[in-house]
């Protein structure tokens, strides 16, 4: 339904849309699609979707995914890919969990550990991709397997963290003023978000500004748009590519810790398939796999759309576990094919 609407509106606005940049056009479509979908869900499914907390829970549950998707959008804009983010997240949760519980560490250091792991992966993968010109897919596929393997080497059994200062942090709830709701018993309940959401929103803002207004940000777009041109324009392509992977690594460090804050446990199954969710969210948010096109705000809404779709699928009664997997894949497939068609049309 939402698809029909958006395509109809794009038909009417064709003249205006043609003048729009690729990035802006895809962004608009994503945002409109998200709102249509959410409002549609409120009207037709009602129930949970009418409660504000449902929306904030989507945010709470997907804060880590938002951060990871920002990283993926960045590498995809540069024309590369990183599929190790899920594995790295799992590794981070496990390392931090082991450090906090078995080694009695403190929270601040655990954050540093998370960032260090992310940066290490980013730097190593980035170096192989940028300086040795190895296919990013193979490199980060190996990275993903390495991270997952390392997770079980660090500790093979999943366990919940009981470190007090960590659990205190984990359970911190930030009230969203004025967005609460009245529960069936007639009591007003405040709506809340977790710390991770604040971090994720910060990441979105910082990344958006970086990509939009700094020279480096524009260099990412330039390299993704056309490597040859970027070279001719005097951009250091290798360095730019390396930095993209490094930043993505850093973001998987942050995302990993945000995930850890939400789940509160260390497990190899943590963030399973997160790379695919992040890629799908970025693509839905208008980032092109071919590079050069994308917008962090779009990615943010991409994550929201992607998880809302899953919520809708579940609420619509298709709650068997496999439906989520299949829906995700169908959505990804749909967007990949649309992008491919858009690209081939553009060439003509």
């Amino acid at each position: 339904m939402s698809k029909n609407n958006s395509s109809a509106s794009s038909g009417g606005l064709r003249g205006k849309l043609n003048n729009m940049t690729d990035t802006n056009m895809l962004l608009m479509i994503t945002i409109i699609a998200f709102f249509l979908m959410y409002i549609g869900a409120m009207i037709f499914l009602g129930g949970g979707f009418l409660r504000t907390q449902t929306f904030f829970n989507i945010l709470n549950a997907n804060a880590a995914l938002i951060v990871l998707s920002c990283g993926l959008s960045l590498v995809m804009i540069t024309g590369s890919i990183d599929i190790s983010v899920g594995g790295v997240t799992a590794l981070i949760t496990m390392c931090c969990a082991v450090y906090l519980d078995n080694m009695g560490g403190n929270v601040a250091v655990s954050v540093l550990i998370a960032l260090a792991i992310g940066l290490a992966f980013g730097a190593f993968q980035g170096a192989l991709v940028a300086f040795l010109d190895i296919q990013p897919f193979i490199v980060t596929l190996a990275g993903m397997f390495f991270a997952k393997g390392m997770t079980t080497i660090v500790n093979s059994n999943p366990f919940n963290v009981s470190n007090e200062s960590f659990t205190a942090l984990k359970n911190t709830r930030i009230v969203v003023p004025g967005m609460g709701f009245v529960n069936p018993k007639g009591i007003y309940v405040d709506a809340y978000v977790e710390i991770g959401v604040i971090v994720a929103l910060l990441v979105v803002v910082v990344m958006f500004c970086m990509l939009r207004w700094t020279k480096l940000g524009r260099a990412f777009y330039a390299v993704g748009g056309n490597v040859q041109s970027a070279l001719m324009l005097g951009i250091n392509v290798k360095k730019t590519r390396f930095l993209a992977h490094l930043f993505c690594g850093l973001l998987s460090g942050i995302g990993g810790y945000v995930y850890f804050l939400h789940s509160g446990n260390g497990a190899v199954t943590n963030a399973a398939g997160a790379e695919m969710n992040a890629i799908a969210s970025s693509i839905i948010g208008g980032t092109m796999l071919t590079g050069g096109v994308g917008n962090i705000i779009g990615t943010f809404f991409g994550v929201l759309s992607f998880s809302t779709i899953q919520n809708i699928v579940t609420s619509a009664g298709l709650d068997e576990a496999w439906w989520t997997g299949i829906t995700k894949a169908v959505i990804l497939c749909l967007f990949l094919v649309i992008q491919s068609i858009v690209m081939s049309r553009k060439k003509k």
Binding site: R218, N226, M232
Partner: peptide, 19 residues
């Protein structure tokens, strides 16, 4: 063959990589 980046703005294409 245009050696500019089609996905950037006109001004960006004129100034990127110069400073």
């Amino acid at each position: 063959e245009i050696t500019l980046c089609p996905n950037l703005s006109v001004a960006e294409n004129m100034y990127i990589g110069r400073t």
